[in-house]
Nucleic acid binder design. Sequence first.
DNA 1: GATGGCCTAATTAGGACTTCCGGTGT
DNA 2: CACACCGGAAGTCCTAATTAGGCCAT
Length: 436
Amino acid sequence: MQSELIFDFASDHVNMSQLGGYSDYPAVIVEQVPHPHLFSYTGLTCEQSQTKHHQQLLKVEQCESGEEETMETLVAADSLLNMDYPDTLSLEHYSQTFLPSLGDIITTPVTQVTVSAEGIVGAFDQPQWHSLHTKKPAAQLQSKKRGRKPRHRRAESPTPDIIVKKDKYNKGGNTLYLWQFLMELLQDRQVCPRYIKWTNPQAGIFKLVNSKAVARLWGKHKNKPDMNYETMGRALRYYYQRGILNKVEGQRLVYQFTSLPKDMIYITDGDGIKEEEDYDHNENSGNDEGVSDDSDDSTIPSSDQSVEEEDSHPPQKKPSFSSVRSPATQRTRPAPRPSGQRDTVLRSASTSLIQEQHLPIVSAEMLRTLQNLQKVQSLQPAGHASVFKTAQLLGSLCERQAAAEVAVDSDEKSHPRLKTSQVETPQLVPLTSSDQ
DNA sequence: GATGGCCTAATTAGGACTTCCGGTGT
DNA sequence: CACACCGGAAGTCCTAATTAGGCCAT
C-alpha cells in the first residue's frame, strides 16, 4: 500500500540507489508549517544546540503593537476557519505533504529511517517505540498463513504521551485523533491561547476558551460541517473511559490530559513564570468560569484570506503569546496509568538549531536534512541531482543561519527581547487530577 | 490436470468517533 | 432559559485483517 510509505529521508540505511530512476524525487519539501510542529518532527537534540543556546528552546518576539496583534489574530482566526486548516497540522500535514506525491512515484517499500546527528540509523525512533513493540505478543509476529487465525486486535490510538507520528498507529490514512488535534492546537499560536489554552501546563489542564470555534475546527478537519461542541464533547467524554482525558470538575470547558509528551511546546498567554505563579489563583478563583468566548462567529471573521497571506503576517508577535516554554516542574507520578495507556514513548527534547525566525519556511524534513547535511551530501547517489541541489541550498542556508546566529547572539546580549525558559523536562509526564 | 505462489478484490471486524437523546447541574 | 455536562444507544466512517478467486508457472 503506497500510503503506508513513510519517508523520513531515504530508504533503509539510505540506500538511495533503490530509488533509482526517479530523478525528480524530492529530498526536501520546503513549505510553511506552524512552527511548533517542527520541533515535534525535527529530531533535533538538545545537545546539538545547547552549546550555543543553553536556555532557549524557542525564541518568540513580542509584539510591539496592540493593533498588530488584533489584526493578526483576526486574520489568523479567519484563516483557521476558512482554510483547510487541519491539513496543516503536523500529522496530516506531513503525511499528506510528503507521502502522496511519493506514493505516486515509489513502488518499492521504504523503511522509515532517521538521519540523526550521530549518523544514519535504522528504523525511525526504534528505541522510542520499543516499549510499544515489546507489548505485542509474539504471536502477532508469526508469518501470514492461510486459514483462519484469531483476529488481531486493531491497534488502538496512541495515547498522549506517545510520539505522534505516522507509523503503525497512523498508517495510511489521515487519522488524527481528537486528542492529537487538541494538542496540536495547544501548540499552535494561531489558536492558542485564543481558542484553546493551557490553564496549568504542568498538570496538562487546558481550557476550550472558544469551544464552538474549536469544535468547528475539529469539524473542518473531520469534514463534518455540523460538528459542534456538543458532539465534540461527547468524543471528549469517551476519553475519560480510555484514560486519555479527565474532566476538571467545577470548571466549565476545562479538561486535563492524563499524560503529555515531555517536549510539548507550551504556549501560554503571559509570562511563563508569572503564569505559573498565577495559576493557583486562576484555578482557585475560578476566573476562567464564564469567560468563554463563545460568541463564536462574532469573534471569527470570515474572509478569504489565504494561508499564504496569513503566513506572510505570522501572528506570532503578540504580547500575550510571549511565553513558549517547556513545563518548569513537570512531575513524574507514581500513580498507575489507566489501562488504556501504553508505556511512555517520548520524543527526545528538541532544540533550536534553526532559529525561530527561520522556522516558518523550514519543514521538519528540511531541518532533519540540515542536521545531516554532510552525511547526505557524502552519499552522492547517482541520478538524484535535484536531491543534492536541494542539499546544497540547505547548506548555504545553514551557513547564513550560523552567521545570523552570531549577529543575534551579540544583539540579544544587549537587547534581550523575549521571555523564554527551557527547563529540564522529566522523562514521563503522567498527569493525575492531583496536579490540579 | 494438480499444485502452489502471487496478486487483487471483496468481506469482515473493530476502533474512533458522530449523532441523537434524556437527564442533571449551574 | 441557556449552556455545560453526562452517559447510553445506535450509526457512520475508515482501516487492517482475512478470505476467495483468478492468473500463472511448474
